[in-house]
Amino acid sequence: MPEVKLFDSERKIMECLWQGGEMSAKELAEELEKTVGWSKPTTYTVLRKCVAKGAVERMEPGFRCRALVSRAEVCRQETDELIRRNYGGSADRLVASLLGGKKLSAQEIERMKKLIEELE
């Protein structure tokens, strides 16, 4: 799957689809009006952008929509971009930045050790 870069507004559409599964554009508009305060035209505009990017599939009849990329894939892409842009592609520098100066509990240290062992 090619990378799909999502703006915050597009991410709101995706969150609805990831939580609710397949939805009609009308259902999306109603949900986003309640949760974000968007008008129907705003939702439809952002939804069209998601379709154009290949993140959402539009199906007829009824302008039904479903996510074509998973939350996990989007998170992986965004994390990879963060590491590349801010840490020179070095994941260990990201981890060092996240942990810098923090006191970890014994449980947290143990979980990190297990993660590292699984990656080896």
Rank of each mutant, 00 (worst) to 15 (best):
G37H: 00
S70R: 03
G37W: 01
S39Q: 08
K49A: 12
Q19E: 14
K5C: 06
V74Y: 03
L94R: 05
V46H: 03
R58C: 10
V56W: 01
E33N: 10
L99T: 00
S70V: 04
R76M: 10
N86G: 00
V69E: 05
S97R: 01
E78C: 03
R11D: 14
W18F: 03
I13D: 04
L104P: 00
S24E: 08
G54P: 06
R71W: 01
L99D: 03
G101H: 02
C75S: 14
L82Q: 08
D80F: 02
A91C: 09
S24W: 01
E108S: 11
E15F: 00
A55S: 07
R66F: 06
E60G: 15
E108C: 05
W18T: 06
K102M: 11
M112L: 15
R76T: 08
L82P: 05
E120V: 14
K113L: 14
S97A: 08
L6H: 06
M14C: 10
R11P: 05
L82M: 10
Q19Y: 09
T35M: 03
G37F: 02
A52S: 09
G62P: 06
L119R: 15
T42F: 13
E3V: 15
A106G: 08
V4I: 15
V56T: 04
G89Q: 02
I83H: 08
Q77S: 14
R93V: 06
K40F: 10
E3A: 15
L47V: 08
K40V: 12
T43M: 06
I116H: 13
